[in-house]
Amino acid sequence: MNQQPFLRIFTAPATLCAVGFIAAMVAVLQYSLRAYVPGSLDPGGFTLANFADLLKPLYARVFLDTVVVCAMTAVVTLIVGYPLAYALVRVEQPILRSILLVIVVTPLFLGEVVRTYAWIIVLGNNGFINSLLLSLGLIGKPLQLMFTPFGVVVALVHVTLPVMVIMLAAGLSHIDRDYSRAAESLGAGPIRVFLTVTLPLSLPGVVAGTTTAFAWTFSAFATPQLIGGGRVNMISNLVYQLGFSSFNFPFAATLCVAGLALTALVLGLLQLASRPLRKIEVH
């Protein structure tokens, strides 16, 4: 008897997509091993030179900057996101909850460009913050916020915050409130309940959120490009420059491959570090 109706018809399109995607990734891999022929769109023969070039200080520097920016963004997003996630899960009134939810979720769907543009207006020399501080007389001349790592991280935190909050909230919402009620009934104060019950139980959500925040930041392009303005460069910016300014697609591909390896490494380390946590997962 056919116990698996539709198996083939339903798997075929997905398989096709998977094959297409793999082909695209293989194309990147293949280009990363090809020589760059200046002035030509077609790559030359196979070589490992691109990978050797990665070690040049210029590129090593960009890698380092990228990792630092990603890590800082992930940590700040976590610290800022936790209280919001907590509030989102614990707020009782449906209306307040809905408002909070829409405020949190809307930026998620706004796209990087709109949000980055908004931050340009906030951080610029004639922007909101500088105008405000100047008119209050707190500063004499505008602060340099644009084109600094600080500005990039602030904008990136804003970009990754929604997804972090959602992942943290997903983790928090599956913690049975009876655990904290039980702790309260045993005489623990709110801070102790939080530190000894809620926080440890929410760690899986923390790991998931941090992982995603890191990956998203790594992927960001418009924010470092527009707010970093060439002074804060991330791998994404370098890939685009190489591809569309000097048509050096082989080296752009090499950077992509190296970036993938780096992401895999960091995510792998995060998974490894969080392994002991999985023991305390609920259910």
Partner: peptide, 30 residues
């Protein structure tokens, strides 16, 4: 259950953690 189930699933989920510029470049080259 079918062969390659988790492989196909893994491939289709992976764009979540693969940078979009890599995906874009891949399809451009392809």
């Amino acid at each position: 259950k079918f062969p390659l189930k988790s492989a196909i699933e893994g491939i289709l989920i992976s764009p979540l953690v693969i940078p979009h510029f890599t995906v874009g470049l891949g399809f451009l080259i392809l």
